[in-house]
């Protein structure tokens, strides 16, 4: 039975695609973005045990095999474990089967238009997603993939075949900035941008605008705007320090990017032909 590590499921979300959607967040991400708001989703738990004794509710235990166990009934969601974890992981991850996840989706089904998978990076669970989307499709609901673009959709288009589209993050275009910001080469991301656009599966692109990073911001926005035109939505997101690891806050900024500053880039994008560019 296929299982995937699920960080959490939000039954109703109005910010992960059109309408009301159930969002499934998977654990684990190949990037290590400096500005990640939920760094505890980056890695899988290494069962080092550091968090176990610090849990004030006794919700964490080490079992006979040395694996950390999380008792959701006892957990008071104080997030002490997440703050303490030295490995950017979380002990509160559920290894779920497709049926497990479907159980929660079916419950929300009457109220939603579809399901969005996110993360972490959901495409790490490609085979799981294919089965999940096939089941969701049977309910007459749409499936969207929220992705950082690290998975080469052209090389393995199976998951696209059972989904309605991708919401793609294009975080950095300049190679040096990309290496620094996301610790990953940006080539696959940019390849995906073109491919998804070509096959009509690009639902939206998102770019975060950082305070006082004129050159980097502009390079990314110009590139994306020129490529997508009015082919899909372009969300310009203001950098927010909330949840960002402290050391990286020092580097990127301890303040939210100004609305006017972000709007400048949305305007630039629109001037370059990305008619559906707007700040969120």
């Amino acid at each position: 039975m296929k299982r995937a590590p699920v960080n959490k499921i939000i039954p109703f979300s109005n910010v992960d695609g059109p309408g009301n959607r159930t969002s499934v967040f998977f654990q684990g991400c190949p990037f290590n973005c400096l500005f990640c708001h939920n760094p505890e989703t980056i890695h899988l738990c290494r069962h080092c045990g550091v968090c176990v004794e610090k849990c004030p509710a006794g919700a964490l235990t080490l079992d006979a095999q040395g694996q950390v166990r999380w008792d959701s009934g006892r957990c008071v969601q104080c997030d002490a474990c997440i703050r303490l974890c030295p490995h950017d992981a979380s002990p509160k991850v559920r290894w779920m089967t497709v049926e497990d996840v479907m159980g929660e989706i079916r419950r929300a089904a009457p109220y939603i238009g579809g399901v969005t998978t996110s993360g972490g990076e959901c495409t790490l669970q490609n085979d799981f997603l294919i089965d999940l989307f096939t089941e969701v499709g049977k309910l007459g609901k749409t499936c969207l993939i929220d992705s950082n673009g690290s998975f080469d959709f052209e090389r393995d288009p199976r998951v696209l075949a059972v989904s309605q589209g991708v919401m793609l993050d294009v975080k950095a275009v300049d190679p040096a900035w990309s290496d620094q910001l996301i610790s990953y080469p940006r080539d696959t991301v940019l390849k995906n941008l073109d491919y998804l656009l070509r096959v009509g599966k690009l639902y939206e692109v998102r770019t975060v605008i950082f305070p006082d990073r004129d050159q980097e911001n502009e390079a990314t926005v110009r590139y994306v705007a020129r490529h997508i035109g009015d082919g899909c939505n372009y969300k310009i997101i203001r950098y927010r320090p909330f949840g960002v690891r402290e050391k990286y806050q020092k580097l990127l900024g301890e303040f939210t990017a100004e609305a006017d500053y972000a709007e400048k880039y949305a305007q630039l994008a629109r001037d370059l032909g990305a008619a559906k560019a707007y700040v969120v």
């Binding site: 059109p18 309408g19 009301n20």
Partner: peptide, 20 residues
């Protein structure tokens, strides 16, 4: 506030709930 931009999300909830 974000729901002002996504009234369709609320309508979808209302529809489902009235049907139920």
């Amino acid at each position: 506030e974000t729901y002002l931009k996504t009234p369709d999300a609320i309508l979808s909830i209302i529809k489902g709930s009235l049907a139920n």
